[in-house]
């Protein structure tokens, strides 16, 4: 079984984000890391290939400046190879442009049974890319999976719903978006980290994928930021150290609010 995982390399979320004052795009300079949301898809893909008794996991990613740090992390976990789309023409790409790039990259990966992605990225979190990729490929999409099983050319998931979950199935090839926490991502072993250094990363441009400059990047986004303003700040209130009796202050607060 050949599973492709869409992964995003993002600025470390621990570092406060910044907007470029000129373009208002999220600044994505410096070292990028594997979005933790994607580690679940990578782990799920590795487990599914194991269960299928063979096959491999290919990563696809779009990132500026030929960035591979995050890809190396996922390769060290066990993915076999990666396709990286890196091109100045992609700067400013919105979710749909990104999906166009990823769909082309999936096609470049050859015969693919299943594409996995996170439900949304940690930095941009538009949350539409997996289903957009599926639509562009003409494939079914099973979204918000909390469990994924593949057997006999069919993928079956438990899909998160407001009320609980639905069991949903589709024939392969298909796109599945996985929610965080569904599997426990493995830590790359030392051997894995060493092996990852020599795993192939196929770095391509938008043009290599047959995408014109008008389809992607700023030109493709068709929206403009009209205003950026700080939100009204919220004032911190009373703070007390627990001396064993702080719960009584909470009870009094609840009484004032009449919630008890």
């Amino acid at each position: 079984m050949h599973v492709v995982v869409c992964v995003k390399q993002i600025p470390d979320p621990v570092v406060p984000g910044e907007l470029d004052p000129g373009s208002h795009a999220l600044k994505r300079e410096g070292k990028l890391i594997l979005d933790e949301s994607d580690s679940y898809g990578v782990e799920m893909a590795l487990q599914l290939v194991d269960k299928a008794g063979g096959g491999e996991v290919t990563l696809v990613s779009m990132a500026p400046n030929g960035e591979v740090s995050g890809l190396r992390t996922a390769l060290a976990m066990g993915a076999a190879k990666a396709i990286l789309v890196s091109d100045d023409a992609l700067a400013g790409s919105d979710a749909l442009s990104t999906a166009k790039v990823l769909a082309k990259a999936v096609e470049r990966a050859g015969a693919v049974d299943l594409v996995l992605a996170a439900t949304e990225s940690t930095d941009g979190y538009t949350g539409t890319t997996p289903a957009q990729v599926a639509e562009l490929l003409g494939w079914p999409s099973l979204t918000f999976a909390k469990q994924v099983d593949v057997a006999d050319g069919t993928v079956t998931i438990q899909r998160q719903t407001e009320a609980g979950y639905d069991v949903v199935e589709a024939t392969l090839p298909a796109v599945v978006s996985v929610t965080a926490g569904v599997v426990e991502p493995r830590y790359p072993s030392f051997k894995g980290i060493m092996a990852a250094k020599n795993k192939p990363v196929d770095t391509v441009t938008a043009a290599d994928l047959g995408l014109g400059a008008n389809a992607v990047g700023w030109a493709g986004a068709r929206q403009r930021i009209t205003q950026v303003a700080p939100a009204p700040a919220r004032e911190a209130g009373e703070r007390i150290e627990d001396d064993g009796e702080a719960f009584q202050r909470v009870v009094a607060f609840l009484e004032d609010l009449k919630v008890v």
């Binding site: 749909l96 539409t128 562009l136």
Partner: peptide, 17 residues
């Protein structure tokens, strides 16, 4: 989210979410 994503790709329109 499923609906807006698929419609966006069908119509080739961007989304704001």
């Amino acid at each position: 989210r499923d609906a807006i994503a698929r419609l966006s790709a069908k119509l080739d329109r961007p989304v704001i979410t």
